[in-house]
Amino acid sequence: MHQTVLTLAADPISQVVNQRWTSTADGWWLWSAHIGNLLIASVLTLMVLLYAAAKIKTGPESLGNDRFLTRSRGASLIEVIICYIRDEVLKPFLGKRTNAFMPFLLTIFFFILINNLLGMVPISKGLWLIFPEWKKEHILPVGMTATQNIYVTAGLAFIAFLAINLAGIRELGLGGYIKHLTADAPWFIWPIIVPIEIASTFIKPVALAIRLFANMTAGHILMVVLYSFAGAGIYMIGYKPGLEKGVGLLVTVGSTAIAFGIFFLELMVALIQAFVFTFLTTVFISQLEHHHEHGHDDAHGHGDDHGHGKGHEHAHA
């Protein structure tokens, strides 16, 4: 019996990847679980932020000083996140441009965050329990983690790429943007610097895409592996004699406990990765502005040095 099951080797990756729902005859997936998740996440993002906006906005004059209050726990939670990102990330890096970029950068943060968190909800397993025939056909209209799909993260990174470079052109002018590719280096270094700068323009969004994809994938695979250990332990309890039953119990309890801990780590990763994506996009936007202003503008925080260090290194290389 073992010979036959061994041939169907365990594949934890198959437990976390996208699932098909409908596809064309030649294999294009028109609707997949990730698309369903993206749709739900979009609706949730809209609901959460429109609700928060209604609560955070300045109320009518008749409320007196209370019109400045946010009187809702949920909206306060969102407000804390918004204010943290605005004050700790956007303001130090973007200065006067903070309010102009807040909508884009915070929308991308909440969009990714809600997608990441939705990926923590075991929608797929639930649906497959309710509809065993879907499991049999391996189809799923909604579920899994959309930000675990490299195409999704690439799409988001593409938007970030457009935002970074369009903002740069708007700030520096087309001439200034092109001049920026020389990193203020002397002309004889241009043959080296310019290709590096052009490459870095494209490497930045690629790194964004891969970072989010890899982080969301790795943790989920780890959890699947741990649960498969638990499954193996249960298998041993059921089918093995004596001592091995005990080992099976130990493995089941141990790996379940660790997987439980990893779940919370994953929650943290979901937040951190949404933050990192937003943070790096902000940094990349801030890199494309007039360099000579940096040393003098006190409105920029300490983070500015970090954000622009790269540009200055180029200048002194």
Partner: peptide, 12 residues
């Protein structure tokens, strides 16, 4: 047996 069990359960 643990090594065998993992793929066995997963396979099932």
């Amino acid at each position: 047996s643990l090594m065998v069990a993992v793929p066995a359960w997963a396979g099932e």
